[in-house]
Design a protein around this nucleic acid. Structure first.
Length: 424
RNA sequence: GGUGAGGUGGCUGAGUGGUCGAAAGCAGCGCUUUGCUAAAGCGCCGUAGUCCAAAAGGCUACCGAGGGUUCGAAUCCCUCCCUCACCGCCA
């Protein structure tokens, strides 16, 4: 959620930035939010004055009672009753004014960073970095969904039996490869200074709200209605919410966390070859990195995170590219997002395996996640997160890109974790 | 699932109708004392909204949440949520 003060102080700039995100009628929307905030403020002031008067009278009445001047007290009592009626009305008005403001404010997406390219579709994303050669596969190379069957690594049908489509069962070396990747990613994150946490994978409504999944994107999460819990779509939700309603010490920033969790996404309406095999699942594993930063250096940190993730992909010897997402392709809450895509050679397509974003204060505003500045005032932190990495598509790319007539070669960096060099 | 206890500031914890935004202690910050450390003394020390150019300061709200009683509620009443303990069940 944006801060009204941002919009007030930099009105034209905010409008321009909203336009970059292809937000319709940005100028009218911003003007309305500012007006609604002024309305809210004036009602608040009126109410505060009225309450002050009532408090004052109540104190006088107390004093009169003590002195035994009951008659005088009764006169004042009468007066407070009138004030009370008035303030009741204002309380209702204030609630309305706050709701009106909130309803409009939550519709506004985060303002994109100045480096974000204009554009509407994924075609407009800017390739900022490419690494590695596109591998030339041998004649009989096949997509990963055939390899997983051939080598008995993943059983998609069995998952259908147990749960449904999109819940694969990993087996044998397929299961071990998963475990190896998780441990590799966590070890790397630890080396880079991220503190590991193991959060719950069910969260309550407050947490869903804090990171912005609720109320709008309720449909993307699995909901346990009996207990009103949600299965997390990403570790970002529980990990970032650790810091909800806190005031961090400035010297403790940035806070760096990493977490491995399963992730659950309903992804309603998806079909076709985009969801074939491991490309899109309802349950998948992911290691996430999260940072809570001082606004002063959050963009330096974003670049660090980007190069950290790039380093992982290099170590895994996967060809990849980094995209700076255009205004139209960015998520609602992000100010700047880099997507990392690996090339999946048998499918001959790029697969998104990581998304690294700076949300600036958009999330922390909702989370009430602050730090104390030199002048002892509280300010909103910046929140950042990134996948490091999402497993299924990494597995897909490893299987496809490394397939040979002799079998599938495990990237050497993983061998200490898998304890085998080949899948054959 | 059953029974009981309880939710107060960073923590511990007092507070059963006005003088309570809240005692006291701990932690933290500043100063004094001190060869250093420690100890001691003094002062400061919740969040948010709003007024003021800003500081100082003023006003308002917040003692789990929401209602109610009252001129006045942390305190009384109702509803809900949560936590803890014990028992049962499961691992």
């Amino acid at each position: 959620m944006l801060q009204v003060s941002q919009l007030k102080e930099n009105t034209q700039e905010s409008i321009d930035k909203l336009n970059k995100k292809n937000y319709k009628d940005a100028d009218a929307a911003v003007a309305e939010v500012i007006k609604l905030d002024d309305d809210r403020k004036s009602v608040q002031t009126n109410l505060d004055n009225l309450l002050a008067e009532q408090n004052n009278l109540a104190a006088q009445i107390g004093e009169l009672f003590k002195q035994g001047k009951k008659d005088e007290a009764d006169v004042l009592k009468q007066k407070t009753l009138e004030l009370k009626e008035q303030s009741k009305t204002l309380v209702v008005e204030l609630a309305e004014a706050e709701k009106n403001l909130y309803d409009k404010l939550v519709l506004l997406p985060n303002l994109p960073h100045s480096s974000v390219p204009f554009g509407k579709t994924p075609q407009d994303n800017e390739v900022v970095y490419e690494h590695g050669e596109i591998p030339k596969l041998y004649d009989k190379a096949t997509p990963h969904w055939e390899l997983t069957t051939k080598y008995d690594l993943i059983d998609f049908e069995l998952g259908v039996k147990l749960t449904g489509a999109g819940f694969p069962v990993y087996k044998n070396k397929g299961a071990k490869l998963q475990r190896a990747l998780i441990n590799f990613f966590l070890d790397e994150a630890e080396k880079a200074g991220y503190i590991e946490v193991q959060p719950p994978i069910l969260v309550n409504e407050d947490s869903g709200f804090g990171t912005g999944q609720l109320p709008d994107k309720e449909g993307q999460m699995y909901h346990c209605t009996v207990d009103n819990f949600y299965l997390i779509p990403t570790a970002e939700v529980p990990v970032t919410n650790i810091y909800r309603d806190t005031i961090q010490k400035k010297e403790d920033l940035p806070v760096k966390n990493t977490a491995y969790t399963p992730c659950f996404r309903r992804e309603a309406g998806s079909y076709g070859k985009d969801v074939r095999g491991l490309n899109r699942l309802h349950q998948f594993d992911k290691v996430e990195i999260v940072q809570i930063a001082n606004p002063e250096n959050s963009y330096t940190i974003l670049e660090e995170m980007r190069s950290y993730v790039a380093g992982l992909l290099q170590k895994l010897e996967l060809p990849f590219r980094t995209l700076r997402l255009c205004g139209g392709d960015m998520s609602f809450a992000s100010a700047l997002t880099y997507d990392m895509e690996v090339y999946s050679a048998a499918q001959e397509k790029w697969l998104e395996v990581s998304s690294v974003s700076n949300f600036e204060s958009f999330q922390s505003n909702r989370l009430k996640l602050r730090f104390r500045d030199e002048d002892k005032k509280t300010k909103l932190c910046h929140t950042l997160n990134g996948s490091a990495l999402a497993l299924p598509r990494i597995v897909a790319a490893i299987l496809e890109n490394n397939q040979t007539e002799k079998g599938i070669k495990i990237p050497s960096v993983l061998v200490p974790y898998t304890k085998f060099e080949w899948i054959n």
